[in-house]
Nucleic acid binder design. Structure first.
Length: 393
RNA sequence: GGGCAGUUACCCAAGUGGCCAAAGGGGACUGACUGUAAAUCAGUUGUCAGAUGACUUCGGAGGUUCGAAUCCUUCACUGCCCA
C-alpha cells in the first residue's frame, strides 16, 4: 500500500484488509488477480502523472497478476469531470482513436508488454442500451453525485454541471463489471469513480466489489497544481531524456518530496534518509534534485542516458556552455538576425522577437546582440533566452 | 416557457460614452542574482512599423454617436429564481 493516498485512514485500512482477503481467495482458486487502470486518450502524449498508476500496475504485474491497460475510448467521449472545475470539451471519435494508438505504445515504457492486456472500453460500453443505462443509474442517487467535491464546488460557484458528466462514473463503474475486476488502480481524483461507482455496480450485478488502490496525485512542474496537459505543467515521457531531466529540475524544491515518493524508484526509507540529509545540510538540495531527476529519467530511458542528460544539464545551465546537440540553420543571403529568429521559430512574432532584443535575451557566441535589424554578423551559435539554441552556418 | 444577472486578452478579474491596447492577480517570457529551468528581485506580456505612428481586439451580427468594451436592437451561450 506504498504511495497510496486515500485521504481517510479507515478506508485505507479497509482496502488493505480486503486486498489481503482477495489475495487469499485468488490463491485458493489458483488464479491471479485481475487488475486494471483506465486511461482516457484525451491527448496524444502521456506524461509523468499518468505513470504513477502505471508503475503500480507494473508492481502487480511483476507479482504475477493479470494486468489490463484499459484505454477509455468511450469514456473519453464524455470527459471525466473528476479533475476539472470545468466541463471538458467533448472529443470526436476520430480524435480519440488517433490518440489511443500512441497511448499503449508509450505505456510500455513502464509496463511489461508481454504481460499486458490492452483493451478499449468501447468494446462493452458501445453495446449498452438506453434501458441498460437507466438500470445502472438506479443504483445511485443525485445526492451522491452532488456530494462529490468537484460538483459541489461548481455548484457553489454557479458553474454549469452537465447531465452527461454524471454518466462518466457509471461508465467507469461498468468497466469494472465488464472485466470482473478484482483490483482497480487510480489517482485520488478517481476515488468516487472507483470506490463508489465501481464497487456499487459490481455488487448490484452480483460480483464481489473490487479493491481500490488509490495513488497520490503528482503535482506539475509548478509544484502546486495537478499535472495536466491543460495546465501546461507536464513532464512528457516521450520528449527525450534531456528535456525530461530539465523539466524535472524546474520542479520547485517544495514538491521534491512528493516527486520522490510517487515517481522515483527509491524506497520510503531511502527517501526519508535523503530528506534528512538535505535538512541537515549533508546533501545539497540542488544535488538531491539532480539525483531525483536522474532516477526518474532512468526509469523511462536508461541509466546511461540519465547520466548524459545530467551532464548536459550541468554544462548548459551551471556552466552556461552550449549543449551538445542543437538544431542547425543555414543562413541565407541578406537575412537579418530578426529574420533568422522568426524563420527558425525561436520567437512567435516580430513584436515578441523585438522584445527579446530589448531585454538582452539574444546572444551570438555569447555576445549580446542589441538589435535585430542588422544583417546576421557571422556564423555561430545563436542563443535566445536560456534554452533556445541554434547553430547558424 | 417567464423574470433577473452575466459573456473582457492564455486563465481569473476590474472597467458602464472619450484620459482604454483596456487596472489588478495568476501564468508565461526576459534579465539580475543564485543552489538549478528552485527561491528572491526587476522588467516584458495584441499585431505591424527605424521612436511619441498605424491597425485589429472586450460572445456574434447590426445600429445610435464626432467618438462605443461601455448606449440600443437582435442572435448565441451560461447561472439563479419561478413554472
Amino acid at each position: 500500500m506504498q504511495g497510496t493516498e486515500y485521504g481517510d485512514e479507515d478506508l485505507k485500512k479497509a482496502m488493505a484488509s480486503e486486498l489481503r482477503e482477495r489475495l487469499k481467495l485468488a490463491e485458493k482458486e489458483g488464479r491471479p488477480l485481475r487488475v486494471y487502470c483506465g486511461y482516457d486518450p484525451t491527448s496524444t502524449d502521456l506524461h509523468l502523472g499518468h505513470t504513477i498508476s502505471m508503475r503500480k500496475l507494473r508492481q502487480f504485474q511483476d507479482l504475477g497478476h493479470d494486468v489490463t491497460f484499459l484505454i477509455g475510448s468511450y469514456t473519453a467521449l464524455v470527459g471525466d469531470p473528476s479533475d476539472k472545475n470545468k466541463a471538458r470539451p467533448i472529443l470526436t471519435e476520430e480524435k480519440v482513436a488517433e490518440n489511443a494508438v500512441t497511448y499503449a505504445e508509450q505505456a510500455f515504457r513502464v509496463l511489461d508488454k508481454t504481460k499486458t492486456k490492452v483493451r478499449y472500453n468501447g468494446e462493452w460500453l458501445s453495446k449498452l442500451t438506453l434501458v441498460d443505462l437507466i438500470r445502472l443509474g438506479q443504483n445511485f442517487t443525485v445526492q451522491q453525485f452532488l456530494a462529490r467535491d468537484n460538483f459541489a464546488n461548481r455548484m457553489e460557484k454557479g458553474e454549469a454541471i452537465y447531465l452527461h458528466e454524471t454518466f462518466y462514473a457509471l461508465m467507469q463503474g461498468y468497466d469494472a463489471v465488464a472485466m470482473e475486476t478484482d483490483v482497480q488502480v487510480g489517482g485520488s481524483d478517481q476515488l468516487f469513480n472507483i470506490i463508489v461507482a465501481g464497487r456499487k455496480l459490481q455488487e448490484a450485478l452480483g460480483q464481489k466489489p473490487l479493491v481500490g488502490i488509490i495513488t497520490g496525485i503528482l503535482p506539475g512542474t509548478d509544484g502546486v497544481q495537478r499535472m495536466s496537459k491543460s495546465t501546461g505543467n507536464v513532464v512528457p515521457i516521450n520528449s527525450g531524456a534531456n528535456d525530461m531531466f530539465g523539466k524535472l529540475m524546474s520542479v520547485p524544491d517544495s514538491a521534491m518530496g512528493t516527486y520522490l515518493r510517487l515517481a522515483s524508484r527509491w524506497s520510503p526509507h531511502e527517501i526519508d534518509q535523503m530528506e534528512k540529509d538535505v535538512a541537515s545540510g549533508a546533501l545539497h538540495p540542488r544535488d538531491a534534485k539532480m539525483k531525483m531527476a536522474g532516477d526518474i529519467v532512468g526509469i523511462f530511458y536508461s541509466d546511461e542516458e540519465a547520466v548524459s542528460a545530467q551532464e548536459n544539464f550541468i554544462k548548459t545551465f551551471q556552466q552556461k556552455e552550449v549543449p551538445d546537440d542543437i538544431p542547425e540553420y543555414d543562413l541565407k543571403d541578406g537575412q537579418t538576425v530578426l529574420d533568422v529568429i522568426l524563420d527558425a521559430k525561436l520567437a512567435p512574432s516580430k513584436s515578441e522577437a523585438r522584445r527579446l532584443f530589448d531585454q538582452k535575451g539574444v546572444r551570438l557566441d555569447g555576445e549580446t546582440v542589441e538589435r535585430g535589424d542588422i544583417p546576421f554578423p557571422h556564423a555561430g551559435v545563436l542563443q535566445v533566452g536560456k534554452r533556445r539554441f541554434l547553430r547558424v552556418k
